[in-house]
Design a protein around this nucleic acid. Structure first.
Length: 724
DNA sequence: GAGCACTGC
């Protein structure tokens, strides 16, 4: 490709809109309320976090943050003081004045009044308004928590921990005393804990053993706008518990606060955001990759050096090819007058040192162009960006119940994501954002991304709901109801696994199902563990499933592919990937969990340590459920047989033409090139995951014996005409 | 012969 082609490119005309996007005299972005209409029952009200009459009339308020003290709370704990210093009266006075300066403070009395009047209250205010740290304290100060504690959920672990630390400090108590937290693998609580910050997943676990959440008199679901699958499910659970407690004599009422931020203010906070000029494509672009590349050079010709560009594209392949093209074109003579162009790719699979390259400051007379996936949308912040170019698309993983596929497809992003990308241009100074789509296309985008619960396999959710005593999952109060097909598929899977039986049109949990729900795992993996004693290999399957719960174990550094392949061969098993993982785990243990050993063997130390933690927890659940910890040592075919008890609906059969068809839904599928079985042609393979990318690939596969399949589920496999 | 990105129990 040549510069001339780009000069004549399709996207050189832009319409300019929204002169300044983030001025904050007026909220710059007019959007629909970000939270979905939350079903308000009769005794529900919406309380503003600031008693401004005009905004109160609007039903909710976008509080403005005048103090910057909380803004980075999510990312780091800003209080690295010694505990002794907390007793320092001056420090305490300082903390108190900070609390009083928060936007939420003037609304304190009004909020408490609403809390006393209504059992469910929705509080909308931006991050930094103080709702997460202050509201629990207000409730405690008013002694409204006498009959039970306050539990505040967070979608992320770090947030739960760091906010608990801050609140303990403000309340001048030790963390783990009056104020505590509880996340997986880590907690700081005691019987006297009244204010507890937890991850949403943690509270969901708690609800399995105590569906009425009887320890608490207050549940605060924070960051509800993020619509994580756990917060969504909790919403229904808590409402259910509230109803039951209300109608049960002797039960204390359960009070529910839904706390949500609106995306616009949340992501464009004063002090963190400079004005951004917006540009839309004048007409619809046929080739968005080409359009964005054209724009790079338009900017490059005009903008001063060190005004860096962040270009959002969808995936690794696209990014690598665009990076190569841009580097090639940058050598063109007509660009001699321009700053030197440094083009850098950015995506999760990139080796760590290459990822770090994007953070290196731009040199004098140079310009950086970062070509990134949506990893740069939220997860990382790159300094120096003055221009954002947005292709308007991203890859989204969606589960398809009909075929059992997880599809990884390029889709239009939502308006909320588009604004998130835009915001990346104005972190340090005023910036510009070029959208490679028209204003009309933008308007046609969804306001928010599809909630996770509508894109997921629901078998875990359904098992959890049943374990909490929710009889009819179909009538459960979902904020967004999953389709009948999704619910049906989960029901079928749970039936196959022997977790439920259908009795008089209702699902009933079996004894095995009740045990399966105890495991923090997908039901099919829990089933494998329950089958452990029968096959004498609990120990082995625990290791394998812990490894499957972890991120990738193998490291593939660029330039050392050969050595990595040699190292990997030591662990590779002809039986497949599961036994390969088992061999790695055993070797890791034998090497005494040594970091250097991992490095030498191209294994990811952190992820192996994580697997070790998961395994420890699973062992505890086994002990609690009476699952015997048997071991088969070298009899690895028992291990594979055991795996098949939970994964038997994920089997593919070799056809005469050398391709594989899944037995369940007759989909064509191929062994993934990273599989230990790749290149071989076993008659039957068991796969862990089926992902549709270029084509349908089976990930993490093992050889299975068809006879085992008939032993495990005779009727199912007779129908599938599997030869023994 | 191929890998969107997170989070969580």
């Amino acid at each position: 490709m040549f510069v001339n082609e780009l000069r004549e490119g399709v996207c050189k005309e832009w319409t300019q809109e929204l002169k300044t996007m983030a001025g904050f005299q007026e909220p710059p972005i007019k959007k629909a309320k970000n939270d979905r209409s939350v079903d308000l029952n009769a005794n529900t009200s919406q309380a503003p976090t600031q008693p401004s009459p005009s905004q109160a009339a609007n039903g909710h308020l976008k509080a403005r943050d005048s103090s910057a003290s909380f803004q980075n709370l999510k990312h780091k704990n800003p209080h690295k003081r010694s505990p002794q210093k907390a007793k320092n009266p001056e420090h305490l006075r300082n903390l108190l004045s900070q609390r009083h300066a928060l936007p939420i403070f003037p609304a304190r009395a009004r909020l408490l009044e609403e809390f006393k009047k209504h059992q469910t209250v929705i509080v909308i205010g931006e991050t930094g308004s103080g709702k997460t740290t202050q509201i629990p304290q207000y409730i405690h100060e008013e002694r409204l928590d006498r009959k039970g504690g306050i539990c505040i959920t967070q979608p992320r672990r770090v947030a739960a921990i760091s906010i608990a630390k801050r609140v303990a400090e403000e309340m001048d108590t030790n963390l783990g005393g009056l104020v505590g937290y509880s996340v997986r693998f880590e907690e700081a609580v005691c019987p006297a804990t009244k204010v507890k910050y937890v991850t949403d997943g943690m509270l969901l676990r708690e609800a399995i053993s105590d569906p009425l959440l009887s320890k608490y008199s207050w549940i605060l679901l924070d960051e509800a706008h993020e619509r994580t699958i756990n917060t969504d499910v909790l919403f229904g659970i808590v409402k259910d518990a509230q109803k039951t407690r209300r109608s049960t004599p002797g039960q204390d009422p359960l009070r529910l606060l839904i706390m949500s931020a609106t995306m616009d203010v949340d992501h464009f906070q004063p002090g963190r955001q400079h004005p951004i000029e917006m540009f839309y494509a004048k007409k619809q672009q046929e080739d968005y990759v080409m359009a964005t590349m054209t724009t790079v050079f338009q900017i490059h010709r005009e903008a001063p050096p060190r005004h860096d560009i962040l270009l959002f594209l969808t995936g690794q392949e696209e990014i690598d090819s665009v990076t190569a093209n841009l580097r090639q074109i940058a050598k063109d003579g007509s660009l001699a007058e321009c700053p030197r162009l440094r083009v850098l790719p950015m995506y999760a699979a990139l080796p760590a040192h290459q990822q770090l390259d994007v953070f290196r400051p731009t040199a004098e007379g140079e310009r950086k162009v970062i070509v990134s996936t949506n990893i740069a949308e939220t997860s990382i912040t790159i300094p120096g960006i003055r221009f954002v170019i947005d292709c308007g698309r991203a890859k989204v993983r969606t589960y398809h119940p009909g075929s059992g596929f997880d599809a990884l497809k390029v889709r239009k992003i939502s308006q909320a994501q588009a604004w998130q990308r835009t915001g990346r241009a104005g972190r340090e100074a005023s910036g510009n954002c070029y959208r490679a789509y028209t204003r009309a296309e933008f308007d046609a985008m969804d306001v928010n991304p599809t909630p996770e619960i509508l894109r997921s396999n629901l078998s875990s959710v359904m098992l959890q709901l049943l374990a909490m005593g929710i009889k009819n999952v179909v009538t459960f109060d979902f904020i967004d109801k999953p389709s009948a097909e999704h619910l049906e598929a989960a029901m079928v899977q749970l039936t196959f696994l022997g977790a439920v039986v259908i009795k008089s049109d209702c699902l009933e949990l079996t004894e095995a199902g009740r045990k399966m729900a105890q495991f923090p795992l997908e039901p099919r993996y829990a089933k494998v563990i329950l089958s452990g004693p029968e096959h004498g290999c609990t120990d082995e399957v625990l290791s394998i499933i812990s490894m499957l719960s972890s991120e990738s174990i193998f490291v593939n550094p660029a330039g050392k592919k050969e050595q990595a392949a040699i190292a990997r061969r030591k662990f590779t098993s002809v039986e497949g990937d599961h036994i390969t993982l088992l061999k790695v785990f055993r070797a890791f243990k034998a090497a005494k969990k040594n970091k250097m050993w991992c490095h030498e063997n191209f294994l990811n130390f952190r992820n192996l340590m994580y697997a070790t933690e998961v395994r420890k927890q699973l062992v505890q659940v086994c002990e609690r459920c009476g699952v015997a910890l048997t071991s088969c040592q070298q009899k690895t075919d028992s291990v594979r047989r055991c795996l098949a008890t939970g994964l038997f609906t994920s089997v593919a059969e070799l056809q005469l033409d050398g391709k594989y068809l899944t037995l369940d839904t007759k989909q064509e599928a191929a062994l993934h090139p990273t599989s230990a079985l790749f290149g071989g042609k076993p008659a039957y393979v068991l796969f862990t995951e089926l992902v549709l990318t270029g084509k349908a690939y089976m990930h993490l596969n093992s050889i299975v014996d068809p006879q085992w399949l008939h032993d495990i589920a005779p009727e199912y496999f007779r129908k599938k005409h599997v030869k023994r």
